[in-house]
């Protein structure tokens, strides 16, 4: 059933698109990171006219499928607003916006975890609000969230096949094209699965190790 020779012959074609897949992952991740922080701050804002609509919109994005959001970017944007994006650009923007709502929660938990005393000390030292955020709050709140961020990077990597629906030529799309040419789907799709596993599993192990280390140092911190 399994044709080694055929598998070997299609492997280069699949390996060729790994860079595209990784580029989409990282570009999407950067967008999500950059967008997630202001979203987190807006959701925590004491001004209700900011926090309520932002919370509502992020909840909406989080509870609806990425696939539909991608379709909105490639079908609705050109028609209603005259903005035409390349599939790749639409893909990373969609991926980035979708996961920025997840990352905003991560940022928020990081910020909420900082003891009140840090705020109070900054006020006592008469720091400006901007300085308090950039020098005191964020440097403390971001490092503990790194393992969770890493997790989302892996999640986003595994989400890239969805971009094939808007014709981004990534791994799954390539496999489908290759497979349909010869009607041999077993090799093509299995190889894609194996590639995903080989790339994501070691990263997941790394993130877990990081997580354990963080927890240990946290406990030490508590003991002190």
């Amino acid at each position: 059933m399994w044709d080694w020779q055929y598998a070997r012959s299609i492997l280069p074609k699949l390996l060729e698109v790994i860079p595209t897949t990784l580029a989409a992952t990282f570009a999407g991740f950067i967008i999500a990171c950059l967008l997630g922080l202001p979203l987190a701050l807006a959701k925590r804002s004491r001004m209700k006219w900011i926090s309520i609509p932002v919370t509502a919109v992020t909840e909406f994005i989080r509870s609806t499928p990425l696939l539909i959001q991608l379709f909105v970017l490639v079908f609705v944007l050109p028609q209603s607003f005259g903005i035409t994006l390349s599939p790749f650009l639409a893909g990373i923007i969609g991926l980035g916006i979708h996961y920025s709502t997840y990352l905003s929660e991560v940022y928020r938990s990081g910020i909420d975890a900082i003891p009140r005393g840090q705020w109070e000390a900054s006020i006592a030292l008469n720091f400006s609000k901007a300085r308090t955020w950039t020098r005191i709050m964020l440097p403390q709140s971001i490092p503990p969230t790194i393992p969770v961020m890493g997790n989302y990077l892996i999640v986003m990597f595994k989400e890239t096949p969805t971009l094939s629906a808007i014709t981004v030529v990534e791994l799954l799309m390539t496999a489908k094209v290759v497979g349909s040419a010869s009607f041999k789907y077993v090799e093509a799709f299995t190889l894609v699965g194996v590639i995903f596993f080989i790339l994501s599993y070691p990263s997941a192990l790394l993130v877990r190790a990081l997580e354990r280390r963080m927890k240990r140092s946290e406990r030490r911190g508590l003991a002190r």
Binding site: M1, K158, E159, T160, P161, T162, S164, L171, L172, A175, K176, G179, K184, Y185, V186, A188, F189, T190, V192, G193, F196, F197, S200, Y201, A204
Partner: peptide, 23 residues
Amino acid sequence: VEIFRGTSLLVQLFWIYFALPML
């Protein structure tokens, strides 16, 4: 658990729909 968490849902869907019946 590791295989299904380590690969994509869409890849799994395609594999089960297109590859598994052939296999």
